[in-house]
Design a protein around this nucleic acid. Structure first.
Lengths: 195, 195
DNA sequence: AAGGTTTTTCAACACCTGATGAAAAACACC
DNA sequence: GGTGTTTTTCATCAGGTGTTGAAAAACCTT
């Protein structure tokens, strides 16, 4: 078997995928055009449809992450409650500042406000994977724990939105240590039993 | 003088403007279509162009706020530093939960991620009107003050993004008192001299 | 009622979007 | 070299977009 041309030449297919990642991360779902992706990849428009089918499927392919975010959260949680806020923040910054993982994340965040499917994806992740997990680790009555976990989520969303989407200074060019010193204690306060 | 038909019948013109506000707040700039606005207002497409010209001008008209945000910030700042965080938060929630002022604000926030002009608008407002003003009121070296003010801005952005754009629970349906109790102390911590 | 002015609609334009089908080119295997 | 398979392009479609010009309708003033 294995007849025909080399099975799925990964060169151009991967070029299209990389172009799609860049475009979605920069312009969001609705702002990204198949022709724009094809142009950046240096191929014809029909080729992207040939490889990935409909636009929604291309988006899904561009969103594939190397590591599951839920697992990453579990990993950080497994190390205990001491300094959880700071560790969470450091892990977050590392993931978002790495283009490989940051691109897909930025794509969802950029798409969500004007693309309901992306909004639903992000909303369910934050509510069920992030808030629910954090609330379970917080030593407080359930309602209070969920509120505090939601406070952490909103602070985290605000940081990534300001730094990576809006690129607001001085947040956009601050280094990790400065941000951890600035916001780490806030997360720590929400997550710790005190107050 | 005053010849011709009644000078600018405010009825339909206002209906178009209200429809535009609703559409921009719900779908953002790129997601809003002139035909969608016209449909919601119950008029022909050409009428919205007749009244407001190009789409960008309609957007600008829909963004007109009853009160200048900069003045609102100054008003809160003028009351002193005691409890500034809580007062800021209460004023913010009041403005965003009022459809008249919340609509335009939501329009900008929804449009910014995929519409560069909106992003620039929001970025400059946050950097120059919000962060700069707050930093001036914080008792710390300039660089530190700007960082702390930026932390306030990111927390505030995160809250409105989570509550009004993504509608994340339990933030979306929490009442003002609960949110003030939850996040007020965070802002207070950034703004106060301590730490 | 007549004339002038504004509001409203109809129709069309040039352009861009995602999607598809068929033909052409490039390649692997016999 | 011939054959079958895959990759790539060309051409085209139907639908939606912002925008504009001209005609029709509604209105005010005299």
């Amino acid at each position: 078997m294995n007849k025909g041309r080399r099975r799925g030449s990964p060169d151009t297919r991967d070029a299209v995928l990389q172009a799609a990642r860049a475009q979605f991360a920069q312009h969001g779902y609705s702002g990204t055009t198949l022709r724009g992706v094809a142009a950046e990849a240096g191929v014809d428009v029909a080729l992207v449809s040939y490889f990935f089918g409909r636009k929604a499927q291309l988006f899904a392919a561009a969103l594939a992450l190397p590591v599951s975010p839920a697992d990453a959260i579990d990993g950080v949680l497994a190390e205990g409650l001491d300094g959880l806020g700071e560790r969470l923040l450091r892990r977050l910054l590392a993931v978002w500042d790495d283009p490989v993982s940051g691109g897909p994340l930025l794509s969802v965040l950029r798409s969500a406000p004007s693309h309901e499917e992306s909004a639903a994806l992000l909303r369910e992740f934050v509510e069920q994977e992030l808030i629910a997990r954090l609330a379970r680790a917080i030593d407080a009555p359930p309602a209070q724990a969920r509120l505090r976990a939601a406070a952490v989520a909103s602070q985290v969303l605000g940081l990534v939105f300001s730094r990576y989407v809006l690129r607001i200074e001085p947040l956009a060019s601050a280094d990790h240590d400065a941000l951890v010193a600035l916001i780490g204690p806030v997360l720590e306060g929400h997550l710790s039993v005190a107050r």
